[in-house]
Amino acid sequence: MTAPTPAPVVRQGRRRASGALECEVLAALQRAGVPLTPREVQGFLPGELTYSTVVTILSRLHGKEVLTRTPRGRAYAYAPVTDEAGLAARRMHKVLDGRTDREIVLTRFVDGLTGEDHRLLKLLLATGTA
C-alpha cells in the first residue's frame, strides 16, 4: 500500500472549516484505495490530529453511511461505500428523500443546469442509462 498524497487543509483562522476534517479523512481513504484503520488514516493526514479525533471523524462518517467498516485486529478498517461521484449522487438522493415537493425541487434543479448538463441529462433519460 502506498501512502496517499496529503489532502489540502482548509482553515478558517486556526481551526478547520466546518466539515473540512470529514472531507480530508474521506479523501485520504479514497486515495488509499484500501480500507484503513484509524491509526493508518492518522498517518496519512496533514497536521497533528489526535487518534481520538480521527476515530470520532471515522465514526461520524460511518454513522452517515458514507463508510463501511470491518474488524481488523483490535480496531476497525474503514473504506468509502462508493467513489466521489457515487457520494455526490447519494447526497442528491438524500435531499429528495421525504420531500413532498419533489417536482418543484427537481424542476428548480433542472432549471439551474448549464446547457451542456441539460443536454446530457436528456440523453441519459432518453437512453435509459439514468
Rank of each mutant, 00 (worst) to 15 (best):
E65N: 13
A126S: 10
L120V: 15
T53W: 00
T82N: 07
A85Y: 10
M1D: 06
A126H: 08
M92Y: 06
A126I: 00
L113S: 14
L45E: 09
L123T: 11
A7W: 12
R16Y: 04
A20E: 07
H118F: 12
A17S: 06
R15Q: 06
F109P: 05
T2K: 13
V110D: 06
V54G: 03
T56N: 15
C23Q: 15
A27E: 11
K64G: 06
R74A: 07
V9D: 06
A28I: 01
E48I: 02
T114G: 14
D111R: 10
E22A: 04
V55R: 14
A3H: 09
T129D: 09
A32S: 14
T107K: 09
L123V: 08
L21T: 10
V41H: 01
G128W: 05
R15K: 08
L121M: 12
L36N: 04
T70I: 13
T37D: 09
G47W: 06
S52D: 13
R102Q: 11
A77V: 01
P35D: 05
Q30E: 14
P80N: 05
I57N: 03
V54C: 06
A126P: 01
G73K: 07
Q42C: 14
R72N: 01
L61S: 06
G112D: 14
S18W: 00
L58A: 12
V81T: 15
R16M: 05
R69H: 09
P80A: 05
K122C: 11
F44Q: 14
H118Q: 12
P80F: 02
